[in-house]
Design a binder for these strands. Structure first.
Lengths: 204, 204
DNA sequence: ATCGAGTATGGTACTGAGTGCCATGTCGGG
DNA sequence: CCCGACATGGCACTCAGTACCATACTCGAT
């Protein structure tokens, strides 16, 4: 039918609106009194809805903060798919990170900074963050494996791809951390270049 | 005064014994019916003690499985301290991993395998595992920084050290995963060599 | 205009992890 | 033999997360 907005039905649109509302209300509370100290009851009270409904929009409290991370896996996979087939894996990953940085950090640096702050001040969120990154591996492996150097005899290509992806994500993580340490003043792109060259000397 | 065993008072010795007992009882239950499905009430019932006491020996349920991880950070730091000062950072880390592998995997491969299995079948444990590894960084940075190539002008050495450590740990993680996939048949040492060479071509 | 299906909502009751407190017991040293 | 430190068990509580049910609301079809 005549979908007025974005090709989505009204059901889906209101659903997203409610979720977005809930999200901003919750993040405001988190910023105000901290993640741990904020209960779900407080969030739903502030948003004017019931506890039951909350869990229909978010699987758990963590999901408020880390929910968007799942999508980044796909962003990375898509970005890698667009890189030339003969590009080496390290450069391809570095370029793929450009897309993520563009879509998240460049779009709203303040939000990225605040999120990073929460992450680093809360072990549970940090843990969840790292675990979500592990989920990206499976999506990225098919785009990395063909770029690897020929396997040495009886070596496991899959393990090598996993390691390379994990190493690159560790670089992204380290760069993010350093960037946040400068309060977003430094250039995240430059930091990322530096650390990825530190891990693989002579890269790019 | 006359410490009969290991230079520890009787208090500390009984304390460790109780903790060890609790640990084996819990791990048996986990192996039997799974981590999530086992409640703390069941553990303490099987061990014949109260719930209150349990939390005096373990900070949380996760601590049963991941408690030993904290010590590995120190093991790694000590191992790095013993490496020659002029050894490059990647080789030093690879050799430091030898110590960890020797102390944990070689000592009791079955236990390491079972633990790995639990880790990979439970997102919460995996997350906790990764978060604990992050805690190692601060201990390792001082041993890595001096081995890095001269910093390029305005680059942050600390970020580079963090990234290198993170990348190496990602290799260790990938190797462990691949090793567990072969049910411990493959040589973990060899896998680790392969993946660390994949991340840094021409290493060692 | 009405009906029925699908969906959103609120409420209630439950489990299980983790915290805080207190009263009691037990062991070791003087 | 007693005192103090530490260990224990029990209780009451908070909070996250699950399951289920009853009630609205909305949309499309007749």
């Amino acid at each position: 039918m005549a979908e007025t907005s974005g090709g989505l039905g009204i059901r889906e649109r209101t659903r997203r609106a409610v979720r977005a509302e809930l999200l901003t209300v919750a993040m405001d509370l988190f910023a105000d009194k901290g993640y741990d100290a904020t209960t779900i009851d407080e969030i739903v009270a502030a948003a004017g809805m019931s506890r039951s409904s909350f869990f229909r929009y978010f699987t758990c409290k963590e999901d408020i903060v880390l929910g968007h991370l799942q999508a980044i896996g796909q962003t990375l996979a898509d970005a890698l798919a667009r890189r030339p087939a003969d590009e080496d894996e390290w450069t391809a990953l570095r370029r793929a990170f450009d897309d993520v940085l563009l879509a998240y950090h460049a779009r709203d640096p303040q939000h990225a900074l605040a999120l990073r702050h929460m992450l680093e001040s809360n072990p549970v969120l940090l843990a969840g963050n790292l675990e979500k990154q592990c989920r990206w591996h499976d999506q990225l492996i098919p785009h990395i494996t063909p770029r690897l150097a020929p396997a040495p005899a009886d070596s496991d290509t899959d393990a090598r791809a996993t390691a390379v992806i994990g190493a690159a994500l560790a670089c992204l993580e380290a760069a993010n951390r350093a960037w946040r340490a400068t309060n977003g003043q430094a250039s995240l792109d430059k930091i990322l270049d530096d650390v990825m060259r530190a891990v693989r000397p002579g890269a790019f």
